[in-house]
Amino acid sequence: MRAGDRPAVAIAGVGQAGPVAADSRSIPEMVLAAVEEALADAAIGFDGVEAVVTASVDLFDGLTASNVAITEVVGAVMRPETRIAGDGLCAAIHGACELRAGACETVLAVAHGKASMAPHWALTEWAMDPVFLQPLGIDFLVCAGLQACALAQGDGGATERWAELAARRAAAGDAAIAPPRSAAEILASPVLASPLRRGMAAPLGDGACAVVLRAAAGGPGEAPVRIAGAGWDLEPHSPGERDLARWHGLERACARAGLDRTDPGLELAEPSCLFAHEEELFRAAAGIGEEAPLSPGGGLFAGTAPHVAGLSRLIACARAIRDGAARRALAHGAWGPAGQAHAVAVLEAW
């Protein structure tokens, strides 16, 4: 999806609930808080929303059609709603597609996740192929360990580097969920799936994000931030069919978004990296060197919620552009085992 003669897509409002380690509110209450903040930010009410795209996962919510719990609080009664069983950034991208297709002029994109409801990594085992992978006890955490192993091949300093990276990211965040730890503490933390240790994983908790997107004729004054390009891409489900040391899906998603591998105009990158080693995969696939700031607020290491991550990265980019900290930024979302699926959006100041 690239900017052209179709309507441009402006980010008119953003809202967030959490992330926190455990939100005592129900899912609808948590989602409503994020939605109300986004609507207020866009200076509209529920009546100003024409269509809704939500992102949530049945398995993580413990009910089939996980969007049924939030129909009212996202304003989807008597409105077209689309549900994405993937990262929240994909909900925003689908909303942008609706706007560019001319289907409507205002879309609300919402994502929620509550990791405190159930043991998250154990649940992910049931998202794996049931005939060959589930019986072997393979979940997303195991896949991350295998990916980290593949990446560290012939690289003796990898784990130390990842520990330092995780410590740096966690220190930059507001420690909403887990207190920051030093690299030495991270290297001494329990092994999750070797070579990954607990401190190398972003802390998971509860949260919701909401974004109001608006079709804009163009020009400053309407909204300060626009989506200049977006794309998403899948890899095969089985880790055995992939080159685990590369995020090829992200390379293709970036190309779909019209992003050159070494985009000189990119002033900020906000990747969805649940593990420290994924940041290296992200940099290599998206062509991000050291020149553009990456996750200045700690990224997901400040705490995140499953499948909310990508939409929270879009909000981080939009806020940075509004604040004048960047004029062009890359938001990234990922889901599935070992980065099977990727979505990216390029945001620009108007």
């Binding site: 939100d23 005592s24 509110r25 129900s26 899912i27 609808p28 209450e29 919510d61 413990g62 405190s116 409801m117 159930a118 154990a122 649940l123 049931w126």
Partner: peptide, 9 residues
């Protein structure tokens, strides 16, 4: 599998 639901206010 088990999930713990918050009932809401």
């Amino acid at each position: 599998l088990g999930w713990r639901y918050a009932s809401g206010a």
